[in-house]
Simulated assay, not measured.
Amino acid sequence: MQSALRSASRRVSAVILAATLSTAALAFAQDAQPSAPGEPQFPLANAANFTAASPTKAEVNAFLNVSWGYDKDRVWNVYAIEKTQAAGISRVVVQVAQKSNPQQISPLSFFVTSDGKHLITNEILPFGAHPYVETRHLLTERANGPSRGAAAKTHEIVEFADFECPHCKAIQPIMERLVQDFPQVHFVFENFPLTSIHSEAEKAALYSVCVAKQGGDAAFYKFADAAFENQNGLTPESSDATLGDAVTKAGLDPAKIGSCSYTAEAKSAVAASIALAHDLQIDETPTVYIDGRPIPVGEVANNQLPYEKLKDIVAFQMQIEP
């Protein structure tokens, strides 16, 4: 986790969710709070640093508890909540450290909007004691792709993926581990073909919809496994054969699935999944949520985050009341 804490220039969502902070550390030589041995010595928070009425320190801590509570090694101190020149926009400064490395204190700052529902850095993200509830409700209502795991949507992991995306292929073993480790979770696959960069992604998505329609969810996942395994064959010259082979491995007729892929019904299903991704402002694949919270599956695939830490995030989020 320490390497994740020190990596720089990531998306802010990764910063909030995986505690990715700047490598620059502040050296506070004076006005340090007394602390127990082995704990970070955060600087005293001066009352002059709290000039904004909203959000309150309690609200900031509630948000950070939801975002970071899975990591028992992480501690933080809300150092400032300040007015800015933009009416209603407050600047929040938080100092973050690890109990295992108390000498390094890293700063994190972001802005909170006047409605108390959004934070801003280089993008806009949800804020508050329940920052993921709206996304959770949207996914519960509209993420209706092929599923596995628990039948009930009490807890739900939704994966947005593109069959031609190398990173989507890389996370499949991790998704399989999550399915095994969390049998009480309802897993959903949503197509999000990135047609501007992947020429065969939409065709693969259409095939997958037809496989699910004709063969059910179990057939879909057999098709998906084969399509990802033979991803190099998703080219204009060989995609028909590659997808046909995946259909055969799913136990269905490639000719029937191919014909189905041209129907308005199949196109409408893929379009609905794409519309959901756009409404969630997803701009990359893979994107994976647990109960509405984005989780850094890609960082596990890239060996930037241990799988056990990902499990901690999932398990922690499942403890939070919707």
Score class of each variant (00 low, 15 high):
Met175Cys: 04
Gln184Cys: 07
Leu206Ile: 08
Thr154Tyr: 00
Glu176Asp: 14
Ser239Cys: 04
His155Asn: 15
Leu178Asp: 00
Gly233Trp: 05
Asn191Tyr: 00
Asp240Pro: 09
Val209Gly: 07
Ala227Lys: 09
Tyr207Phe: 14
Asp181Pro: 05
Gly251Gln: 06
Leu206Lys: 06
Val188Met: 11
Phe160Ile: 06
Glu176Pro: 01
Ala143Lys: 09
Ala212Lys: 09
Phe228Ile: 09
Leu206Met: 10
Ala250Cys: 06
Tyr207Val: 07
Ile197Gln: 02
Glu237Gly: 01
Tyr207Cys: 01
Asn232Ala: 15
Gly233Ser: 07
Leu243Glu: 05
Cys165Glu: 03
Tyr221Pro: 08
Ile197Gly: 00
Asn232Arg: 15
Glu141Met: 07
Cys168Gly: 11
Pro146Gly: 07
Leu178Gly: 00
Ala250Gln: 04
Phe187Tyr: 14
Pro193Thr: 02
Val158Lys: 12
Leu252Gly: 01
Arg142Gly: 08
Pro254Ile: 01
Phe163Pro: 08
Thr195His: 05
Tyr207Gly: 05
Glu202Arg: 15
Asn144Asp: 03
Pro173Val: 06
Asp217Trp: 01
Phe163Lys: 08
Ala212Asp: 10
Asp240Tyr: 06
Ala204His: 08
Leu234Thr: 03
Cys168Ile: 02
Lys213His: 09
Ile174Asp: 11
Ala151Cys: 04
Thr235Arg: 08
Gln180Gly: 12
Asp181Val: 05
Cys210Ser: 12
Leu178Cys: 01
Ser208Gly: 15
Gly145Met: 08
Phe220Val: 03
Glu164Cys: 08
Val247Gln: 00
Leu252Thr: 00
Gly145Arg: 08
Pro236Gln: 01
Phe192Pro: 06
Glu176Lys: 15
Thr242Asp: 09
Ala255Pro: 02
Ser196Met: 13
Arg148Gln: 03
Ile197Phe: 00
Val179Phe: 12
Gln214Trp: 06
Gln231Ile: 02
Glu141Cys: 00
Lys249Ile: 09
Tyr207Met: 06
Asn230Ile: 04
Val185Ala: 04
Gly149Leu: 04
Lys213Leu: 08
Ser199Trp: 05
Phe223Ile: 00
Asp181Glu: 11
Val211Asp: 02
Ala201Met: 11
Gly149His: 10
Asp217Ser: 04
Leu234Ser: 03
Arg177Met: 12
Gln172Gly: 06
Ala152Gln: 15
Gln184Thr: 12
Asp240Thr: 14
Met175Ser: 12
Ala219Asp: 01
Lys169Met: 00
Val247Trp: 01
Gln172Glu: 15
Lys213Trp: 03
Ala170Met: 15
Ala246Phe: 10
Leu178Lys: 02
Thr195Trp: 04
Ala255Glu: 13
Ser147Pro: 00
Gln184Asp: 15
Pro173His: 10
Thr195Glu: 14
Ile157Val: 10
Phe182Asp: 11
Phe189Gly: 02
Glu229Thr: 08
Phe220Asn: 05
Ala151Trp: 11
Gly149Thr: 09
Glu176Leu: 11
Lys213Asn: 06
Glu229Asp: 11
Pro183Ile: 13
His198Asn: 12
Lys256Cys: 05
Ala250Asp: 02
Phe220Ala: 06
Cys165Ala: 10
Ala143Gly: 08
Ser147Gly: 00
Ala226Pro: 11
Glu156Ala: 07
Ala143Asp: 04
Asn144Cys: 02
Cys165Gln: 10
Asn191Cys: 00
Ala201Ile: 06
Tyr221Met: 09
Gly215Trp: 00
Ser238Val: 13
Lys256Ser: 13
Arg177Asn: 14
Glu237Ser: 05
Asn144Tyr: 01
Ile197Pro: 02
Cys210His: 14
Pro193Ser: 01
Asn230Ser: 14
